[in-house]
Design a protein around this nucleic acid. Structure first.
Length: 377
RNA sequence: GGGGGUGCGCCGGAGUUGGAGAGCCGGGCCAGACUGUAAAUCUGGUGACUUUGUCUGAAUAGGUUCGAAUCCUAUCACCCCCA
């Protein structure tokens, strides 16, 4: 049974600490969820996810997993948990983000979205019902409603029509959820998604509609698609003010460490983002002292730990000079160490946020931390 | 010791039948970007300087020519063959 318990509320901000229960275990919020699009968090072993990074929940992606390995294999394996062996909670995105990211090769109509596969060009239609059915087969604990993530900038008419379409699709997702059940003997929970671009009246309407759907948790989509950070914060603030307090709020696709800290302060409980893993593979490290481009020449003879303040094994064990060497020589271990480090930093960051919310000094800690994490070293 | 061949960018290629070069393609190097992952990807820079441009530059030194990376001479380096 999916539950959310609100444990503490920060006196000086809207930040909250809570706990989610799922069939695969509990999640302490606020939380960051590493992205594992293809059923793997790129470059990271699950043992590292558990013991070094302390990930409590990871993501998978409906669109990508549907294409490969495909539903037949996933069903035979007993869902994605059975396939990749991850024992803890999982969440799947519905493919809604691919409506945005693969916009050059898809067509939207009332019924759904037809994608041209980025792998072989074949044609595949996702409807809200289909997105639910596929996510039932993947077997994630939390499954996302099928939505359209509109681009930024986006004119008012487009944003309004898109939002209304997403709302109609939500009704179909909810209906399909009610008609079906978990394939593997445990419950799956649907999160609907607020849209409306950066238009306050649309966001209000959408947040009210999503709240009224009465699902156990709610998500905010359509942000971190290129809009100024201030717009992201204003929209998140507004929407959090409307979404119910007693249910978790998931801000999709966000973000940088400072984005996450600011949005925790606005009342967000769950985050996911590809930045810590993608940027790690590209040599960008997030540390307690600021941002490092480990490929830069200035680290070539710096034998200090990647991040002495990060208790993660990889951050302590390897020096900046060595990690730079690995990245420069394109050794596979380089991106692995960097990914391990960045994710452990993200999980450390949200863990600290939670600790300070409970201790009652979150607001002042956050102000100090925001300054530190965005420094360029 | 004799004969033949090749020399331009940090490296490797392409190009050259006397006619526009700071200049093609890779790599390296130096930076930058990345936000519900078509991303171990992409973009820019990489002779010098007083930078809307100017100067130097095809192994080195000369020569022929209106004009030379291209032809000639010498020297140097490397490669191949013969002894």
């Amino acid at each position: 049974m999916f539950t959310f318990q609100l444990q503490h509320t920060d006196p000086k901000s809207a930040a909250r600490a809570g706990q989610i229960e799922t069939a695969h275990g509990s999640i302490q919020t606020p939380i960051f969820m590493p992205v594992g699009t293809l059923g793997t968090v790129k470059g990271v072993h699950q043992r590292e996810l558990e013991s070094d990074i302390k990930a409590q929940i990871i993501l998978g992606n409906t669109y990508h997993l549907y294409l490969r390995p495909g539903l037949e294999i996933l069903e035979q394996a007993g869902g994605l948990h059975g396939f990749n062996g991850w024992k803890r909670p999982m969440l799947t995105d519905s493919g809604g983000y691919q409506v945005y990211s693969l916009s050059a090769q898809r067509k939207i109509n009332e019924e759904g979205v037809t994608f041209r596969s980025h792998i072989d060009g074949s044609s595949h239609t996702f409807t809200p019902e289909r997105a639910i059915d596929i996510q039932r087969i993947i077997g994630a604990d939390i499954i996302m409603a099928f939505d359209e993530c509109p681009p930024y900038p986006c004119d008012y008419e487009y944003a309004k029509n898109s939002m209304e379409l997403t709302h109609r699709w939500l009704d179909r997702c909810v209906k399909r959820m009610a008609e079906t059940g978990g394939k593997y003997g445990y419950e799956q929970t649907l999160f609907p998604i607020v849209q409306g671009s950066t238009y306050p009246d649309l966001r209000r309407k959408s947040a009210e509609t999503i709240a009224a759907a009465g699902q156990p948790g709610n998500a905010i989509g359509g942000l971190s698609v290129g809009e100024p950070a201030e717009d992201m914060y204003e929209t998140t603030d507004q929407v959090c003010g409307i979404l119910p307090k007693d249910k978790p709020r998931y801000l999709m696709g966000v973000g940088t460490p400072e984005n996450i800290l600011e949005c925790i302060a606005l009342g967000v409980d769950m985050f996911d983002c590809v930045l810590p893993t993608r940027n790690a593979r590209h040599g960008m490290l997030y540390t307690s002292e600021g941002i490092i481009n480990i490929k830069n020449a200035k680290w070539k003879d710096d034998f200090s730990a990647v991040d002495a303040n990060n208790p993660c094994y990889a951050s302590q064990q390897y020096s900046k000079a060595y990690l730079r060497h690995l990245m420069h020589t394109k050794e596979l271990l380089g991106p692995q160490i960097a990914s391990l480090h960045n994710l452990s930093f993200y999980l450390w960051l949200v863990g600290e946020a939670r600790r300070h919310i409970i201790a009652g000094d979150f607001a002042s800690w956050k102000e100090e931390m925001v300054k530190r994490v965005q420094r360029r070293l």
